[in-house]
Design a binder for these strands. Structure first.
Lengths: 350, 350
DNA sequence: TTGAAAGCGATACCAG
DNA sequence: CTGGTATCGCTTTCAA
């Protein structure tokens, strides 16, 4: 078997050429058998398929991407992977992308803007067909790189402000406003915003801003901040709650930046003997899978992460196919549970 | 500026050649300026760097990978992205990989073996420098593809059985045994294993097997199964608990396949008026961030996901550098909390 | 220290 | 329906 010898001699993995030699056709025909089967005689097609199977042929997409127009890579840049924050977005995104044969290349900035620049550059070096990235507020260099790359860019999770190309996300300022409005409707009057608030977590800042404006609109005392520049953990919620109540005992409503932090808040309040939702109310953000299973169950805002991932996938495919940039705003939902009182009837009768 | 015109004329993104033309050197020199700077005259180096900056040059790694020996891609294949199950492994893995300039390409099988075959093939088509994959039990085809690819393969999360190349994980059967042993030591006698148990979640099956063997060794009644072939959710825990206790009222200890399911179990038990940890005990698996914050706090087994991710990254780099395959077993920890009684003194006085 | 030229493995266009 | 051939952008000898 001369052909067999020829195949092995090259050493590495089988290539289109190996198949071509073995079947006795040109490289070209083999390639077409893959991409446009109906342009190849059925008999030949069968032989080619057989050869591929026998040699365990796996196409080299580096070569394909270099040669062809598209690369089939979608770069996904997130700011965190902890606590499912974005895991379910990625989950939805990547499985929706699957049917278009697009592969996710993942990067995680951990809220570090320098990393973001490095990673975006790194992602672009793979000549992705599109890039999906968390947030709409990026270092100038990132915006510049992304813009000048000419690649479709979908900004996820947040919307508003200057969009590079397209966006799918929710209105965080509005969500923060809704958190505060709910607390106010429940009768809480002295509100605090508590949790992780990293320098570059613009979404957290927007929610806090939204809450502050709702409070101002209601003519209540200023929002008190109990935040720290680090990732959210339940223990952080505990610590911040104790600090907060030591210095601001009048606080009767805590708006949390995440459910994970809220878990710690509930515990700290319990330790201090404060009754929930009587003495004090707590609202979270994110609808963690445990939120409905802590005691008391946690009122929270549920972003539709799954929808965001799906929409992003749809938009990516649309943009690749030449459709226009778009911005999709995805709804969130306020889930009133036992960590806040039932909303009072409006005093104004409506 | 003739050179400028020449650069644009090609249309696409700047290439090494664009830089070369602009600086007036060969492509080669520019390439070396990047990979081996000290082989290029400092003055030239500066000019090249300047040109790259001005043109916003981003190397094309598809071309690099095709041409060079390595591709700098690490394929990561997980079975799930929900509920942080593997998110923190990926988190640790990818940030450790960063310093070696290795990029994560992600695939999610969702516990579907057909998908696993497809995705592994897809990953291999990028000619990765290494592949990290969840589990040690794969469809034959996957093992075959991976083996014949010649790429270093690190199997994560589980260990034991036939390893393709290297592995980093924990002993799940041992963990299941420890769960049961703890329950027995706490004085519970009628144990059940409850939760999600998908056909292809071999880790869950191993833990159940470990629990069953510990129970047999203790001479207690057989382990009762309350499992379903679907993903774990708190609501599943609730449903299964009700079914279980309706048909097996004698059960006094529930070993859960995950914390997320255990949350629902706690709720269902509360609804049925069973006292925890008096009437009945519950142990989880996974140490979810909320486990210590539900009521009662959940006794659980904590796998060291972070360590697994880190070790995997180390092993990947080692294998790429030609070191030998290895298997690392990572410890887990049993965290006794309030959903189980404190362990009794051994009856044998020891 | 630098450059010329030959691949890497596919795709795409143009003939036959 | 099938086959040549140029090409994608970079790395890698081998010379100069």
């Amino acid at each position: 078997m001369v052909s067999d010898v020829e195949e092995r001699e090259k050493g590495g993995a089988p290539t289109l050429a190996s198949i071509a030699v073995r079947v006795g056709v040109s490289v070209n025909t083999v390639s077409r058998a893959l991409r446009a089967p109906n342009t190849v005689r059925p008999e030949l097609r069968r032989q080619i398929a057989k050869a591929m199977d026998e040699l365990n042929y796996v196409p080299n997409r580096l070569a394909g991407g270099l040669s062809g127009t598209r690369s089939d890579i979608v770069g996904v840049v997130v700011t965190s992977l902890y606590y499912s924050e974005f895991a379910s977005i990625i989950d939805a995104l990547q499985s929706a992308l699957l049917k278009d044969n697009l592969q996710v290349m993942l990067a995680n900035t951990r809220y570090d803007p320098d990393q973001e620049v490095t990673l975006v550059r790194s992602i672009l070096s793979w000549r992705p067909a599109a890039v999906a990235i968390i947030g709409v507020d990026h270092p100038t260099k990132v915006t510049e790189l992304l813009t000048s790359s000419g690649v479709p860019v979908i900004e996820m999770w947040d919307v508003g402000g200057d969009i590079i190309d397209s966006a799918v996300g929710m209105d965080h300022e509005g969500a923060g406003k809704a958190q505060a409005d709910h607390m106010i409707a429940c009768g809480y009057r002295h509100l605090a915003f508590l949790g992780s608030m990293r320098e570059n977590d613009m979404r957290a800042k927007k929610r806090a801003r939204g809450a502050a404006s709702a409070i101002a609109a209601a003519g209540l005392p200023d929002l008190v901040y109990a935040v720290r520049q680090e990732g959210g953990r339940p223990a952080l919620g505990e610590e911040l709650t104790h600090e907060l109540l030591d210095s601001n005992p009048q606080i009767d409503g805590i708006i949390c930046n995440s459910d994970v932090v809220a878990f710690g808040v509930l515990k700290a309040l319990h330790e201090r003997g404060r009754k929930l939702p009587g003495d004090v109310g707590v609202i979270g953000f994110g609808d963690s899978e445990a939120a409905n299973y802590v005691t008391p169950s946690l009122t929270t805002v549920k972003p539709d992460r799954h929808r965001i991932g799906e929409f992003t996938a749809e938009l990516i495919v649309a943009r690749i196919n030449g459709e226009e940039p778009r911005t999709n705003v995805v709804d969130w939902e306020l889930l009133a549970r036992n960590s806040t009182r039932p909303p009072l009837k409006s005093l104004n009768g409506d």
